[in-house]
Simulated assay, not measured.
Amino acid sequence: MNKDELIERVAVRSYLTRAEAFRAVEAVFATIGDAAIRGEAVSINRFGIFSVKSCSAREGRNPRTGERILICPTRKLVFRASRAMKDLLLGEERSDPIELDPR
Score class of each variant (00 low, 15 high):
C55N: 15
S14Q: 06
V52M: 05
P97G: 00
V12N: 11
L88V: 02
R58A: 14
S51F: 05
V10K: 06
E5H: 05
K76M: 12
A57S: 15
L100P: 01
A11W: 09
R61T: 13
R9K: 13
G91Q: 03
I49D: 12
R13D: 11
L16A: 09
R9L: 14
V52D: 03
T31I: 02
S51A: 12
T65W: 11
R46L: 07
S14D: 01
D101E: 02
D96Q: 03
V28S: 02
M85L: 15
C55D: 09
E20F: 07
S43F: 12
I44L: 15
I49V: 15
L100H: 03
I32G: 06
F79V: 11
R64Y: 04
F50T: 10
I44R: 02
I98H: 00
A24L: 12
I71T: 12
R75L: 04
I37Y: 05
M1Q: 01
A81L: 11
K53C: 00
T31D: 00
L77F: 13
F50N: 11
S82V: 02
N45C: 08
E67F: 05
R83P: 08
R61K: 14
V42S: 10
T65R: 05
V12R: 13
P102T: 07
R75C: 01
I69V: 13
A19M: 09
L77A: 12
E40P: 11
P63V: 09
A41Q: 06
V28Q: 03
E59C: 09
L89F: 07
C72S: 14
Y15S: 15
A35E: 03
R18V: 12
I7P: 02
N45M: 07
F29R: 04
R13G: 15
C72D: 14
A19N: 11
R18M: 11
E92T: 08
R46N: 08
I32H: 02
E92Q: 09
S14G: 01
M85H: 02
D87K: 10
V28D: 06
A41K: 10
E40K: 09
D34L: 09
E59W: 12
P102C: 05
L88Q: 03
N2A: 10
R23N: 07
R94T: 12
N2I: 13
N62V: 13
E59K: 14
F29G: 01
A57C: 08
V12Y: 04
R83H: 10
R103E: 01
V28L: 10
T74P: 04
F79L: 11
R68M: 08
R18F: 12
A21T: 08
F50K: 06
P97S: 06
A57W: 10
R61S: 07
S56P: 13
D4E: 15
D101V: 01
